[in-house]
Amino acid sequence: MSERSAWKALAPWLAVFVLLLLAPRFLPRFQIYLTGLILTTGLLAVSLNLVLGLGGMYQFHHAVFYGIGAYTVALVITKTALSPWIGFLLAPVVSALFSLAIGLICVRLSKLYFGMLQISLGSLVWAVVFRWYSFTGGDDGIHGIPVPDIISSTDGAYYFSLILTAICLIVMQRIVNSPFGRSFQAVRDNPVRSEAVGINVKRVQLTGMVISGAFAGIAGSMFVVIEGSVFPELMFWTLSLEIIIMCLLGGWFTFLGPMLGAAIIVLLRTVVGIYTEYWTLVLGIVLMLLILFLPQGVLGYFLEIFKRGGMKAVQERK
């Protein structure tokens, strides 16, 4: 790609970033909070898509790593005398370690068996957190976590999540396009052939899980900043399925599709939640229609239309 076309590709994203950077100037507080939540959930969904879409692995319990990241920050702040910033540094590390441990156990299985073993291990973590009242606060969780002053206001939390999301997305984009990302994709498309050309399939999958877990941990730490609390629902399996749904909704063969899916879900919950308490009914119906008629996701659908349009143009020129 020449330098000019690289800039051309980058320009819209820069514009979006600048727009988001300026958002607190003209949006009310609640919408800023909501945007921060979308970014957090979106980062979580994109991190899941790294293993689900790129790696084709049935990561059924991604929320565990999100919850672990959040709990790491919360526990460092409330239970230790360490600087809160150490908590933010530790969140991805601890999540990555859990990812490694769970990955080491699961990775020798494939597809549904991989997913189910991961769900059982994740539920184990959830059950411990749910019951360990003296350490994790049990089913109540931990509330009113005092984050550092600079990021404790709505705007501060928003900027924190925006900048962190931007950095993470750039790094993840780099990973996707790196030799590692390519081999991960090769493993997804044809594990047998990848093995034959000398890719260590299990190691690639494990590395993918650890990277993805680390980013989920970062998303978890952002959640603590935005909400100021943690609770065991953060690592309950229904949330994991919800994240998978976000990936599906946005389209898992695109990099930013899951971000769009997360935005749709968070907005749907908020907007429908204003009119009725039965928002999951609406979500469920939307999802059923989506799976029946639009299995490649919203972004995937539009990309396909664009591509088809593009192809038509090419054919006409010929």
Binding site: Y58, K111, L112, L241, I244, I245, L248, T280, L281, L283, G284, I285, L287, M288, I291, P295
Partner: peptide, 15 residues
């Protein structure tokens, strides 16, 4: 695929 079926049944759960 199994994953789609899983998500489909999950959406039925929501409803």
């Amino acid at each position: 695929e199994h994953l789609m079926l899983l998500l489909f049944t999950f959406s039925i759960t929501l409803v």
